[in-house]
C-alpha cells in the first residue's frame, strides 16, 4: 500500500503526472477493504477523466515525502482517506464541513481543510500532515514550541493549529501578532488556548529562524 523508500527531506519528489491518474499503475498495489469493488477506469488520454459514482479508482498521493497508492471513491475526502484508510490519525476531524480546522494539512505548503478537499483533487500535490513535521521521532520546531508554551489542552484541535502555524511560517517567517492571529483564525480551539498558541507561534518562528529557516 505504500512505498517503503522514504524520500530524503526537501528532495525533489518524483513527478506524478496527470497520466498516472486512472492508469493501471496503482492496481497492483491496492488492497484496502473498501467494500466497493475496484473498477479499472478509462485510460484514454484524449478526453476528460470520468469516474462514475460509487466506483473506486487507484490514486497516488504524496504524503510526507512518501508515495501512497490506494483506491478511492470520487467523494472520499482527503481527511477520510488519511484517517480511516491510511490510519494517519495525526490529522483530526472535528466538523467535516470546513469550519473548525482540526483537519488542516498543507497542500503544496499551503494550509487547507482536508475535510473539504476531495482526495482526487490532491493528486499531484505535496501533502504534509502533522506526522510529516517530525524529524524521525523528534518533534519539529512548531510542535516543540507548542509543548514549551503549553499551547493546547485536550489536544484535538492541536494538529490543525500546528499545521496552520507551520503553513504560516513557511510563507511568512517573521509574522506579527496580528498575522499570527489571522494565520490560526481558521482553527477553532474550544479549550480556549489561543493566547498560548500565539506565544508558541512566535517561539516557533524564532526557532526556525535561529537555524537558518526552512523545514
Amino acid at each position: 500500500m505504500e512505498d517503503n523508500h522514504r524520500k530524503k527531506k526537501n528532495a525533489a519528489e518524483p513527478g506524478v503526472t496527470r497520466r498516472h491518474f486512472l492508469t493501471g499503475t496503482g492496481l497492483g498495489a491496492v488492497g484496502l477493504a473498501t467494500g466497493v469493488p475496484a473498477v479499472e477506469g478509462d485510460t484514454k488520454t484524449d478526453s476528460a477523466v470520468v469516474i462514475e459514482a460509487g466506483q473506486t479508482v487507484p490514486v497516488t498521493l504524496q504524503i510526507n515525502g512518501v508515495r501512497k497508492r490506494l483506491l478511492v471513491e470520487p467523494r472520499w475526502s482527503l481527511a477520510y482517506v488519511l484517517r480511516e484508510q491510511l490510519v494517519m490519525t495525526g490529522t483530526k476531524l472535528g466538523c467535516d464541513r470546513g469550519e473548525c480546522g482540526a483537519c488542516t494539512v498543507l497542500v503544496d505548503d499551503v494550509p487547507r481543510y482536508s475535510c473539504m478537499t476531495l482526495t482526487l483533487e490532491a493528486e499531484d500535490s505535496k501533502i504534509t500532515t502533522l506526522e510529516g513535521l517530525l524529524d524521525g521521532e523528534e518533534l519539529g520546531d512548531v510542535q516543540r514550541a507548542f509543548a514549551e508554551k503549553d499551547a493546547f489542552q485536550c489536544g484535538y484541535c492541536t494538529p490543525g493549529q500546528v499545521m496552520a502555524v507551520e503553513g504560516l511560517l513557511r510563507s511568512n517567517p517573521d509574522p506579527s501578532i496580528e498575522e499570527i492571529r489571522t494565520g490560526v483564525s481558521g482553527n477553532l480551539c474550544r479549550c480556549g488556548t489561543y493566547p498560548n498558541i500565539f506565544k508558541a507561534a512566535h517561539l516557533a518562528a524564532d526557532m526556525k529562524r535561529g537555524r537558518g529557516g526552512g523545514s
Binding site: 476528460a48 470520468v50 469516474i51 462514475e52 459514482a53 460509487g54 470520487p74 467523494r75 467535516d96
Partner: peptide, 12 residues
C-alpha cells in the same frame, strides 16, 4: 458524509 456523485476532471 458526502453522498455519491460522479467526478469528472476537465483538462480543457
Amino acid at each position: 458524509m458526502l453522498p455519491n456523485f460522479a467526478y469528472i476532471r476537465a483538462r480543457t
